[in-house]
Write a protein that binds this DNA or RNA. Sequence first.
DNA 1: AACAACCTCAACCGCATCAGA
DNA 2: GTCTGATGCGGTTGAGGTTGT
Length: 191
Amino acid sequence: MARIKDKQRPAKKELNTGAWTAEEDRKLAEAIEINGPKQWTTITAKSGLNRCAKSCRLRWMNYLRPNIKRGNMSDQEEDLIIRLHKLLGNRWSLIAARLPGRTDNEIKNYWNSHLSKKKFEKEGLIAGISTKELGSKIDKKTGEENKASSSSSGHMDLEKTMFDVDDFFDFSNEKPSTLEWVTKFLEFGDA
DNA sequence: AACAACCTCAACCGCATCAGA
DNA sequence: GTCTGATGCGGTTGAGGTTGT
C-alpha cells in the first residue's frame, strides 16, 4: 500500500519506501540466501534494492523470514501474550521470543487491536464500568487506556508494587533457568 | 446504495544500544 | 574514552478493508 506521507517526504537518496513488491521480496530473499540475515548494509547493497538497510531488515523479520506463522492467534497464544504482557509490559520482542513463528510487530498489533480492549473490558466489568463507558477510557486509535483517565496500566502497577522487571531477570538470552522461572510464573497464573 | 466510523496491519520514525575503529 | 555506523526496539501512522447506519 502506498502511503501519502512517504510520497510527500523529500527523498534523500531517492530510496523506495512504502509497500514492498513481489520483485523486491524476491531480490531481498536472494541476497539473504547468499549473505545470511546479518550485515544488512551489505545485503541492501548487493541486492540492488533501492531500500535502506533498516527497511530490508524489517521486511525480513516481519514477513519473509522462514517459519513465520500467519493468521489467527490460537487461544493458547493469546493467553500467553496476556500473561507475558502482564509480566514484561510492552517488551514485544521478548514476548515474541516466547511465541515461535510470531513477530514482535504482529504481537504488538494484535495487542493494540484485540487484547488491550479485552483487558479493559474485563477490568471494566470488575470495576463496574460499562462497555460503553470504556469507549471513553480507551484511546480510539491505539486501544490503550487514556492517560488522562487513569494513572497507570496494569503491568506498570505490577512493576511498581512488586519489583523492577529489568533488574530482576534478563530475557535477552535463552537460558533454561530463566525459562523455568517464567514457566513457573505462568503455571502459577493457571492455578 | 452511499457514506461514515471503525479496525487491521505493514511500514516508517526516532531513539537506544552495540561494536569496531 | 569517544566517535561513528549498524542494528534492534517500541511507538506511531495511515491506506485499505470491514462494519454499521
